[in-house]
Simulated scan of single mutants.
Amino acid sequence: MRLYFYRGKSPNFGDELNHYLLPKVFPGLFNDDPSAMMLGIGSVLFDHHPAGVVKVVFGSGYGGYTAPPVLDETWDIFCVRGDFTARTLGLDPSYSVGDSGILIYDYRNPTRTKQHKFSFIPHWESLERGCWKEACRLANVHFIDPTAPVPEVLHAIEASEVVLTEAMHGAIVADALRVPWVPILPFSKAHHVKWNDWASALDVDLRPRPIRASSVQEQLVRWGRSGRRLDGVTGLRRRFLQTLDRRMTERAAESLAMLTNVTPSLSSDESIERAVGRLNERACAILKKYAPHIQR
């Protein structure tokens, strides 16, 4: 079967984690066979997947970006990301197992040397519109680029004592790697529901913290407007906006520094081990059904 995952104009750590992790979980399963596809890490339970293709669901979530999919005989659901996804799709609560990215737990390096007291992972859209690398420098917080190659991001997370993250999979992976994390409220409200969906499967009391915008474009997004309207601005207006951007970056850095004083979150050992165990059980069931010759 094919491994499906979302890929936008920029690589995104959470989505690219599919290509890095799931071939380890399902060795030898993926090929170019168009008759079946796996929906794994991410909010990829859309309403527009091909009608005639078998859709194997393993820890995916519904993000509200489209109407919920209408489930028929082509949907083979083994588990979903959390309670919200299960309710929305009309599934029994037992299907709420956890985001499949949690299985990075099985590949962690507990002896990794800690190099950074605090690290920050912005959402890739915030990285595109904001000035977070500079804000991190000003706040003395290590910057982790969510568009960097997956091994690089994993190494940086494990090398951190605490991760501040606006990227949901920054929190998911940090938690699975047993690195305490501070959730930062995404600027785009469209992303909020996903966090609670994932957290419900791990019994995490999610308390995301707000943070200041690091640029004019980010602030426009917060107000529900497009930052693209700044394209092509020249002259005095451009210089004014550049000055405003610098001030906003400084204030974002101050906000980021304040978040280093927040008590971080971490799911209990019992919760993470329960989720990992259930995900591995579902993975074995998928292999037994679709590739019985493959041993795991």
Rank of each mutant, 00 (worst) to 15 (best):
G52A: 06
N12E: 05
P23F: 15
A167G: 11
R81E: 02
T88N: 07
G232F: 10
A171S: 11
Y290G: 02
R212E: 12
R247D: 09
G52I: 01
S100C: 15
Y107L: 13
S267Q: 01
R209E: 08
S119F: 04
D83W: 07
M168Y: 02
V179Q: 07
D269P: 08
V54A: 12
T249A: 06
A174Y: 10
A190D: 14
S126C: 13
T74S: 14
W223M: 11
N18G: 11
R137Y: 06
H191W: 15
A36F: 06
D92A: 08
D83F: 01
G28R: 09
H293K: 08
Q219L: 15
G232N: 12
P183C: 05
A156T: 04
A275Y: 02
R246T: 15
M1T: 15
S94I: 05
S10G: 08
G40A: 12
C131D: 07
R108P: 06
K117I: 02
D269A: 10
D203P: 07
R237A: 12
K24M: 13
Y65I: 10
V182F: 03
Q242M: 02
S35K: 01
F30K: 10
D269R: 13
V193S: 14
G59Y: 11
W132S: 11
Y105V: 01
N261H: 10
P186N: 06
G232T: 14
S96K: 07
S265N: 09
H116F: 05
Q242L: 04
S188Q: 14
R2E: 09
R229L: 15
I211S: 11
P151G: 08
L138N: 02
R274D: 13
E158K: 01
S214M: 09
D15V: 03
L202C: 07
G224M: 12
G52N: 09
E273D: 14
A257Y: 12
H49S: 02
F84D: 00
T243W: 00
Y4P: 05
A51G: 02
